[in-house]
């Protein structure tokens, strides 16, 4: 019973602090807006594919095409709206993959010392020192350009930072009295790790996950820009790549401007949200 009360007041405190943090709130609103656009894309804009009208090639923004048209005569507004789905998909899939690998490795190598710790962190270090971009390019080329593959590839290279954060937090928590107490009662290691330690380190993990999502979008845009994106789905990076390849980067400013703004908005929103969450969870920062 007491635990329950404690939990609610904890969340209350969190929200109180979170909503005091202006940037965090802006981030939250931004993220909600992004999710909204992604969910209701079919209601906001007609999906585009193939090619449009010859008369519509590279037309500047107008009432009919608020973001202008591209060199295939297609509406850029609709591409940006539908691109939100692609970006969110990539972001969430990446973070799930990264979390599934990074969090357990972080927990185990933080909780246990010795070989497991060395192995886990060694692996993370190796992944951190790898030349990520060339490797991603090779993998994307080998596995074929598909949104799922792209997310998988980015996820496979994003887990080390999550693992490190998890481990660092686990290290500071594992010797606290309540953990020692649980252990002395004879609880199973997995129960200690996932029921008792994980909830207590989740704050910093959560913050880091928002950063992983933001980075994933940038990476996806980068890969798409290099021509390794999914050829048939519209992502923001893909629009940028099309703009670049059309040779109309300078003359048709709207072609690259709007997807760039979308990427910026996405990255900033998630970063601000992360800052807000950290503010909310961190009692030291809270009492300023």
């Amino acid at each position: 019973m007491t635990a329950k009360i404690n939990e609610t007041s904890l969340w209350k405190e969190f929200f109180k602090a979170f909503f005091k943090h202006r940037l965090g709130v802006i981030g939250l609103v931004g993220v909600i807006a992004i999710i909204f656009v992604a969910l209701f894309a079919p209601m906001i804009a007609e999906p585009v594919s193939g090619y449009g009208d010859v008369a519509d090639i590279l037309k500047p923004p107008s009432l009919k095409h608020p973001f202008g048209t591209d060199d295939m005569g297609l509406d850029i507004f609709s591409q940006v709206v539908w691109g939100t789905r692609t970006s969110l998909k990539v972001g969430f899939m990446t973070v799930i993959i990264a979390a599934m690998i990074g969090i357990p490795i972080g927990l185990f190598s933080g909780y246990f010392s010795g070989l497991i710790s060395t192995l886990g962190m060694g692996l993370a270090d190796i992944f951190l020192t790898l030349p990520v971009l060339p490797l991603m390019i090779i993998m994307a080329a080998l596995m074929g350009p598909d949104i799922k593959n792209i997310a998988l590839i980015i996820g496979l290279f994003s887990w080390p930072q999550l693992a490190r954060i998890t481990r660092a937090s686990t290290l500071s928590v594992k010797n606290m009295e309540y953990v020692v107490a649980t252990r002395s009662v004879g609880a199973k290691t997995s129960r200690i790790l996932f029921r008792h330690i994980l909830p207590n380190v989740s704050a910093s993990i959560l913050v880091n996950m928002t950063i992983v999502i933001a980075t994933a979008i940038l990476t996806e845009a980068g890969l798409s820009f290099l021509g390794l994106g999914d050829p048939l789905s519209y992502s923001w990076g893909k629009i940028l790549e099309n703009a670049h390849q059309s040779g109309a980067f300078l003359s048709a400013w709207w072609f690259s401007f709007f997807p760039s703004i979308a990427i910026m908005f996405f990255v900033i929103s998630f970063n601000f949200l992360g800052m807000g969450i950290r503010e909310g969870f961190n009692p030291k920062l809270r009492n300023r």
Partner: peptide
Amino acid sequence: GNDIYLKKTAQILVTNFQ
């Protein structure tokens, strides 16, 4: 996939086939 002309051609072919 690096040839811009072929990329666009492919995009149109998809619609034509469809």
